[in-house]
Design a protein around this nucleic acid. Structure first.
Length: 506
RNA sequence: GGCCCUGUAGCUCAGCGGUCAGAGCACCCGGCUCAUAACCGGUGAGACGCAGGUUCGAAUCCUGCCAGGGCUACCA
């Protein structure tokens, strides 16, 4: 069974910031979870490289657009492994294969009668050589950058007949209530749709940094159409000599930020319909991370926290991955800071989970010489863990990544409480309690192991270290069941350095 | 201008018509010693933004106001 998930592609107009990392991490977690379930996962990310802002910033940096795009795309691509984000393909919209396929799809849209030539009228700044959007214009129709008067200019343009899809989109929305999540985002899209659709400009004539319109080479496609189509073009050329399109389309999940909701929930399905293609199955909208100063993080504010700093501080991306999914409820906005990350790290990763692992391994070594006793599992823990893998899977299916983590953490706490309740150190002193101690240690080992399997998508490096130390490295979803680890030959554990050491190097 | 979201313990948030309003963190007290001075238990703590209204009953619905944030088709 195929599972195709995408991030939005990053605009190479600047450097990567935590917002990009956030979406990449969330998508990676979902992808890893589905791989655990044995699905044939294809996880796509990449960069969006055409359009005026890129051409402008290239010029400002004294570079050609392509060289500038190469430079920045490399930064985005280089960030992924530092976050343990492992996509199956990294698409660049400057890939020739992408351009070819964009032309083919849009030619079909054209041939199907959804493209017409019209006139785009807007306020134009001769100094910027650029049209300005209505809401960025200063009082008196002046340029927001140069503060000089704008002129009303007209440009011959191709238009996409978006308005022709009003009813089809309404029908699609009502027949696919799960298409947009969470509900808040769906409401917004529906409200927008209800407001009535207008046709949108499909091409630009004044710009050449883009994909050439095949039926009129004097134009390039407007960058958003080029960009959206990445989701569809990538499966066609991600594997040389193999076309995965039939196997992967329609995509299961597009992970996006709320800022680009309309492009993905209105433009995108309409465009696909116009080309005779199926719309994606789901668009999942996450919130924006706010900086510690309360403002939102954004390229244009330049106040983004460098993800590399957060990774370096702890020597692994796991704490950052955990923190982002744990501290901000997925799907809502929330503030993030290095201080809050540190607090979560110490109280939950070090004190709760890391210490639970340490004490479990230490007791097995100390009381049973490292051998996990083949004893019956404690019914109380069996009970506490019943249904947990299903609960976590349901949460992740609903892209409630925080909810999945919360369900797991309730059991982390349960296990720490279990240690106190059973007091293994007392059982160890009583010669008659050998069987009880065996059962407690085996149950603890099994509980920690099951949790490590469930945590693997969130904190892959730490989870695998832990599973290895426990002597049961299997990480498929079947191994997530409490009791699944008691099959097979006796197991020996290894002691390890603290998983999440306190006082990390600053 | 229009539309939308948020405002609940010191902090971050859950609850969204009906047991004394909840969790985590922080604080304080107690317990324990297997463990990364970690863990476990407990106490305290809140006019649920303000003012009206609906209801047998509202943090939960309605109206207005205040404060913060967002969207309004081409910036993530």
């Amino acid at each position: 069974m195929a599972f195709y998930i995408t991030t939005s592609i990053s605009y190479v107009n600047g450097r990567p910031h935590l917002g990009h990392a956030y979406e990449a991490i969330a998508s990676d977690i979902v992808a890893r979870h589905h791989r655990q379930r044995g699905e044939d996962v294809f996880f796509l990310t990449g960069t969006d490289e055409h359009g005026e802002p890129v051409a402008d910033s290239a010029r400002a940096n004294g570079m050609e657009p392509r060289a500038w795009a190469d430079l920045n795309a490399a930064k985005f691509q280089a960030m992924l492994p530092t976050l343990s984000v492992e996509p199956d393909f990294f698409i660049r919209t400057t890939d020739p294969e992408h351009a070819r396929r964009v032309q083919a799809v849009l030619q079909t849209v054209h041939d199907n009668g959804y493209v017409y030539k019209g006139t785009y009228a807007g306020w134009y700044c001769p100094r910027c050589a650029d049209f300005k959007v209505e809401n960025e214009i200063l009082e008196g129709n002046r340029c927001p950058i140069h503060e000089i008067p704008l002129t009303r200019e007209h440009e011959e343009n191709y238009f996409f007949a978006l308005s022709a899809f009003q009813e089809r989109l309404e029908t699609f929305f009502s027949e696919h209530p799960g298409f947009i999540a969470p509900a808040r985002a769906r409401n917004e899209a529906e409200a927008f749709l209800a407001g009535g659709l207008q046709d949108v400009s499909l091409s630009r004539a004044k710009l050449n940094w883009g994909i050439t319109v095949p039926w009129d080479p004097g134009h390039v496609f407007y960058v958003w159409f080029d960009a959206l189509l990445n989701y569809y073009t990538a499966p066609g050329f991600a594997r040389p000599g193999v076309d995965l399109t039939a196997a992967l389309w329609p995509a299961d999940v597009h992970m996006i930020g709320k800022d680009i909701l309309k492009f993905h929930t209105i433009f995108w399905p309409a465009l696909l319909m116009a080309a005779g293609l199926e719309p994606p199955r789901g668009v999942y909208v996450h919130g924006h991370l706010a900086a510690a100063d309360g403002r939102r993080m954004s390229k244009s504010f330049g106040n983004g926290i460098d993800p590399a700093e957060a990774v370096d501080r702890f020597g692994s991306p796991d704490p950052l991955r955990f923190y982002l999914m744990r501290d901000v409820r997925y799907g809502t906005d929330g503030p993030v800071s290095l201080d809050a990350l540190t607090a979560r790290y110490e109280s939950e990763l070090a004190n709760d989970l890391g210490n639970l692992a340490s004490r479990t391994l230490a007791m097995i070594v100390r009381y049973r010489d490292g051998q996990v006793p083949p004893a019956p599992l404690d019914p109380e823990l069996v009970d506490a863990f019943t249904g947990l893998p299903d609960t976590v899977a349901a949460a992740i299916d609903a892209i409630d990544l925080s909810g999945g983590l919360e369900a797991i953490w309730q059991r982390v706490r349960r296990l720490n409480r279990y240690v106190e309740e059973r007091r293994p150190w007392e059982l160890a002193r009583e010669p008659t309690a050998t069987g009880q101690l065996d059962s407690v240690l085996a149950s603890l080992h099994e509980g920690v192991r099951a949790l490590a399997v469930l945590l693997a998508p969130y904190i892959p490096t730490s989870a695998h270290t832990l599973l290895n130390a426990l002597g049961r490295p299997e990480s498929g979803y079947g191994a997530a069941a409490f009791g699944a680890g008691t099959d097979g030959p006796p197991v020996r554990v290894a002691t390890i350095a603290p998983l999440f050491p306190k006082a990390p190097a600053a």
